[in-house]
Simulated scan of single mutants.
Amino acid sequence: MALAPLTPQTSRAYVDVHVIQTVPPANMNRDDQGNPKDAMYGGVRRSRVSSQAWKRATRMHFAGNKPEEDHATRTRGVAAALTEKLGALPGVPDEESAARLATSLLAPLGIKAGKKAGDTAYLFFYGQRQLDRLAALIADRIPELLALSDKKREAAVDELGVQEIFRTEHPLEVALFGRMVADLASLRVDAATQVAHALSTHAVDLEFDYFTAVDDETEKKNETGAGMIGNIGFNSATLYRYATVGLHQLKHNLAAGRESGAAWPATVAGVREFVTSFARSVPSGYGNSFAHRTLPSLVAVVVRTDQPVNLVSAFEDPVRLEGESIAATSAKRLANEHAKVTEQWGEPASFQAVVHAFDEKPALRVEDAFGPGQSFPELLAGLEAHLDREFSGESA
């Protein structure tokens, strides 16, 4: 399949990630009744895993592979976190003093207080390095600031540029997933990533596991009866997962406050980290009960310069088990849909690559649509090389 030519004038690019993944009996993302989430699609009930659940799983995968100082945190308790950090500074005599300093430092942000003492009214998403920079602002002025009244201290802190710290040098998670602060537009960060709700490619039925837990001490006495009984809803499914990264938006978010030229390497590295973590992560709900972690049967990455394209329409007609596995049929359906979209809309990808675990007929169709099968490290290396080769001129 021919790939679209690129020009130095290209201003937008989207990295689409398509995943086919089969999970065994699981309840990784439950609804308000405690059962696996679902949705109607194509006239039948499908298994569903919310975008929020998979975004958090992706973020947790980031955290497991990065040093703590590079982590991001989303919490109502930013004041408590800052209090703890300030309490470790020389010159801060006690926790009460640290709390007073933290309150003054956060005042310029204008974030509304929550109902619980020390909490904000909503979750605030920030990087650990941003909190470190905030503490460094007053590290050499602690005795002076503590000697002031609360009102005068807040006035002094207001001149230090606190808001600028949270507008610049965003950690990767904030740059990717954005930050929404309802009443403070100046602190908002537009997300570079969109993640779809994962849907099963086929119809599913909700099932229940009735379980009993034995009381070990009762068993020793040869007494009968369970120490606990209950049931857990579950289903099993082959899921289609989709996400897209706006390369231009990610670069814009990472450029804020960084030295000229530093944003582009961070952008390419960020895309690699996202693709890796999105592909390898799994929501952990009821993980001890079901041990449902699997790896995808297929990961396809497509770089487009027109718009992101979710290929879920390949599965509007639900896949049925007829001769081939559901995963294999789903992979062929996905390949056909990608080829059809390219042909009908005349917007070929600038890059496409695929990792898959299929043999013979499914493999032929998948590779005809997405290119030769390769290992995941090879896919990542090829994606990085393509982005550097075709888009590095836009990094300035």
Rank of each mutant, 00 (worst) to 15 (best):
A191K: 12
M180D: 13
R56H: 13
A192G: 11
P348V: 12
V15F: 05
F125W: 06
G230S: 03
D150H: 00
L247V: 14
R12P: 01
S350W: 11
A269S: 14
T294S: 04
E164A: 15
S325N: 07
L254H: 04
E144L: 07
L131T: 13
Y242M: 05
M40I: 11
P67Y: 03
A328T: 01
V78H: 03
A135S: 14
N27D: 11
Q52T: 13
D150Q: 05
L137H: 07
E316V: 10
V354N: 07
A381L: 03
A99T: 12
K85V: 08
E378P: 00
G34Y: 01
F274R: 01
E169P: 02
Y126I: 15
K55P: 09
A213L: 03
H197L: 02
T103N: 14
V181R: 13
Q33T: 09
R153K: 07
A63T: 13
M28N: 08
D205L: 03
S236L: 03
A98Y: 02
A156W: 03
H18L: 08
Q9V: 07
A339D: 15
G87Y: 00
D70G: 00
R293N: 08
A80T: 06
L134E: 06
A39S: 13
N235W: 00
P265S: 04
P362T: 07
F278R: 09
K221R: 13
A357C: 02
Y242E: 09
S375R: 01
E169L: 05
F177K: 14
R76E: 12
L187A: 08
A2S: 01
A182L: 05
T7K: 03
A156K: 10
S236C: 03
R320S: 14
L247S: 12
L187H: 07
D388H: 03
V319S: 08
R56K: 09
P93L: 11
G77W: 05
S47A: 15
M180A: 10
V195S: 14
L134W: 01
D183F: 00
A300K: 06
D94I: 14
E169K: 13
R241E: 07
V268C: 05
S97G: 12
V319G: 08
E343N: 11
A237Y: 00
D368A: 09
R74L: 02
T276A: 06
T120W: 05
H338K: 13
F177S: 15
V15L: 07
K340I: 05
H61A: 13
K115W: 02
A203G: 15
G110Q: 09
L187R: 07
Y41M: 04
P348M: 10
P362G: 08
Q9S: 11
E273P: 02
V162K: 02
G382T: 03
S50W: 00
G127H: 14
A331Y: 06
S297K: 06
G323L: 11
A99R: 14
P143Q: 05
Y286P: 04
A63P: 04
G285C: 01
S313N: 15
L148W: 05
A121M: 08
G230R: 00
V78R: 02
